[in-house]
Write a protein that binds this DNA or RNA. Structure first.
Length: 569
RNA sequence: UGUCCCGUGGUGUAAUGGUAACACACCUGGUUUUGGUCCAGGCGUUUAAGGUUCGAGUCCUUACGGGACAACCA
């Protein structure tokens, strides 16, 4: 009878503190029960994993409350912003699996309205034009512990302010000559309330409004009002804007004053931004990596950008899962990148086919295998998912195995090949090492083994227990490939914790290793760009965007959890 | 020295004032034709001290610790 409310109770999401705040607002009947969030990037760089957290939060909130989420470009500073960034941001959001509400919005859409509101503040005696230089204004601001002093221009008449502001707009002044400030309280304990700047002069073309404007609003004068104009109900941002909230509300109060009570009034809620160990997240630093060509570009697979992660082989699902697992709170946090990697493995484990590849090949000859014989062995594509079926792979008397799968003098816990030892070749036969040959440098050149014909995979005798199982490819049927092993870019756990130092000190010299002699099974010839695979026992790989049918290139997305690596440590 | 925010295992996130839970990491063991996956178990009594209460991670006070704020950036 009352199944509706039962359902609501049982299906109620756990929810973070933001859900609770929204629930409170809803219960109080605010905003007519609407929930409209927004994701407001400044188009001055590419989106990174930290933005992904914010995107998942804002769009996720919209989904759970059956509301919507706007995309708004916070483009109030033409000196930093470019169309390239606008495009990449939209692509990345879509790739993550989200669709914004209607058309994208731009703070620059509201320049006319903001100008009018500025005039309104001037007329109300709440804003004034200041002729002083940036340095003088800064020195009058005081410090967090000492009050500021008032500008000598603070008490200009409304008429003079109006005239000056219009002339600012009309381009009569040079950059830095004048600014418009809000008249609040130079003694406030909150620095942001000490007559903050509303407009500055910039004789720069804007990527959308062109040369129409030469004065541009500051973030504080644009953001809250943009939220208000769009009908945003919950304006979710990161912790550093906490001290801006009184100003956010102050501007809204001024703008609304004298108007009928608005249907919706936006409310700013702050949460702690994402930090990942071994990872630099600041846009300034990432831009530096790109400009100094320490990385190939914004989508370099070592970058924490969404496009970099994508090229590295991260799936959108894994990033959404990660965003869910890191949670949302107000505590400063440093998430272990191992969690990100875990989320990826969890997703890739169930969807990526297992294939054979040998990264560092050494030849293995089966001395008792019929010459020129080729057998096609059946191999499951994914033991985690029968639906993915199976394929056949060529087996012959001349194979390649991984160089480090053979040891001349194996230590105790080494389960793989050594003189006299037996191992299974995955999907093949059990073999025994009889002999090996070294080259002039003392490197193992060829390993000679015998195979046991009764132990072919699937045969009755094949159940015999052996300690190890190796992956392999047939020497003549396998195809050459280049494999790029990416590691973390920084060695320091907290590279952003040393703001004064040149971060080059913390770069990991092994962040990229290019292996050119790899061999992969023939089925990979037809691999499509960005498809991901689990290379048996080696990790998850994807085809790099620069790969061609003539030259296969793979990126290592993430390694398998490697117990042997830990044992040998 | 001011204002604001935050203190729960190694790392994160939970817990109508009522037995501290989940995930990652780590450690043990089991299954396995991947040293993967999967399964089972182990690892904290909530920064400290007071107070309110039958009962406090949760409320109050103080201390201590961490963070933010002094761009014509967002």
């Amino acid at each position: 009878m009352n199944s509706h409310s039962d359902e609501e109770i049982t299906s109620a999401p756990k929810g973070n503190f933001i859900h609770k705040e929204i629930d409170k607002d809803l219960e109080a009947g605010k905003n007519g029960g609407a929930v409209l969030t927004r994701f407001p990037p400044e188009p001055n760089g590419y989106l990174h994993i930290g933005h992904a957290k914010s995107i998942c939060l804002n769009f996720g909130l919209a989904q759970t409350y059956k509301g919507a989420c706007n995309l708004r470009f916070d483009d109030t500073n033409p000196s930093k912003e470019e169309v390239e960034y606008v495009d990449s941001i939209m692509e990345d959001i879509r790739w993550l699996g989200f669709e914004w509400n209607g058309e994208p919005h731009y703070a620059s859409d509201y320049f006319d309205q903001l100008f009018e509101w500025a005039v309104k503040l001037i007329k109300a005696g709440k804003a004034y034009v200041d002729d002083q230089s940036a340095e003088v204004i800064a020195s009058q601001k005081g410090t967090p512990t000492q009050p500021g002093t008032e500008s000598p221009f603070r008490n200009r008449s409304v008429e003079e302010n109006l005239d000056l502001f219009n002339r600012m707009k009309n381009g009569e002044f040079k950059e830095g000559e004048k600014v418009l400030r809000a008249k609040i309280d130079m003694a406030s304990s909150n620095m942001h309330l000490r007559d903050p700047l509303m407009y500055r002069i910039m004789h720069k073309a804007h990527h959308r409004t062109g040369d129409k404007w030469c004065i541009y609003p500051m973030y504080d004068f644009a953001h809250g009002q943009s939220d208000f104009l769009e009908g945003i109900t919950h304006s979710i941002c990161t912790l550093e804007f906490e001290v801006h909230r009184p100003l956010y509300n102050w501007f809204l109060d001024q703008v609304i004053e004298g108007e009928p009570t608005p249907e919706r009034r936006p409310r700013q809620i702050e949460f702690a931004r994402l930090n990942l160990n071994y990872t630099v997240m600041s846009k300034r630093r990432l831009l530096e990596l790109v400009q100094k060509q320490i990385v190939e570009g914004w989508d370099d697979p070592r970058m924490p950008t969404i496009s970099g992660l994508r090229r590295r082989g991260y799936t959108a699902e894994s990033i959404r899962l990660f965003a869910e697992r890191v949670g949302v709170a107000k505590r400063d946090n440093i998430i272990d990148v191992a969690l990100l990697e875990h989320c990826l493995r969890e997703d890739l484990n169930k969807k990526s086919p297992r294939v054979n590849a040998v990264l560092d090949p050494v030849k293995l000859i089966l001395t008792n295998y019929p010459q020129d014989q080729v057998e096609w062995m059946e191999a499951e594509n994914n033991p985690e998912d029968e639906q993915q079926g199976s394929r056949t792979i060529p087996f012959s008397g001349e194979l390649y195995i991984e160089r480090n799968d053979f040891m001349e003098e194996p230590p105790k816990k080494f389960f793989r090949l050594g003189p006299g030892r037996e191992v299974r070749l995955k999907n093949g036969y059990i073999i025994q090492c009889q002999d090996f040959k070294k080259d002039a440098n003392g490197e193992v050149e060829v390993i000679y083994c015998t195979y046991d014909p009764e132990t072919r995979s699937g045969m009755p005798q094949s159940n015999r227990k052996v300690k190890g199982t190796l992956h392999w490819v047939s020497a003549s049927q396998s195809v050459p490939a280049e494999v790029r092993l990416y590691d973390r870019l920084f060695m320091d756990e907290d590279p952003s914790g040393h703001p004064d130092k040149d971060f080059k000190e913390f770069l990991n010299p092994d962040s990229l290793k290019i292996l050119t002699n790899c061999r992969v099974e023939p089925s990979l010839k037809e691999a499509a760009t960005l498809d991901h695979f689990q290379f048996q026992r080696l990790g998850y790989f994807c085809v790099d965007k620069n790969s061609t049918p003539e030259k296969l290139v793979f990126n290592r997305t993430v390694s398998l959890k490697d117990t042997w690596a830990r044992l040998s440590k």
